[in-house]
């Protein structure tokens, strides 16, 4: 369950970053992200999808983990991990 929450957060941040012009340039260094960018509609819609995915991740954590307080801690921890992963991935694209 937590893995799924983490994946949703990861995709959410990816969408948020791809909705920004600055990161679209970096994404050009990745074949995969170039393909993703082709599929994605306009930036505001991508941004909306990003936020929706983050909200979905929190709903999933809160409904599927029995104890709400522990669910919140889990969500916050995986949020940081997802953000770090996406930031490091985009930074690695700057190198290439």
């Amino acid at each position: 369950m937590i893995t799924l929450v983490f994946i949703l957060q990861l995709l959410g941040f990816l969408c948020l970053m791809l909705a920004m012009n600055k990161h679209v340039k970096q994404a050009g260094n990745s074949r995969l992200l170039t393909q993703v960018l082709r599929v994605l509609p306009s930036p505001p819609f991508t941004q909306l999808v990003g936020w929706m995915l983050l909200i979905a991740s929190s709903c999933l954590a809160l409904t599927r983990i029995e104890i709400i307080s522990i669910a919140i801690v889990w969500w916050c921890c995986t949020l940081s991990a997802a953000l770090l992963t996406v930031a490091l991935y985009f930074s690695s694209l700057c190198d290439t």
Binding site: M20, K22, H23, S80, L83, V86, A87, S91, D95
Partner: peptide
């Protein structure tokens, strides 16, 4: 800038990493 690490220059990377670690 929404979390960009600039790996080309170590000084800039350190500042970016400091800010990223702070936000995370």
């Amino acid at each position: 800038d929404f979390f960009t690490l600039r790996p080309q220059k170590i000084k800039k990377w350190t500042t970016d990493f400091h800010a990223l670690a702070g936000i995370l």
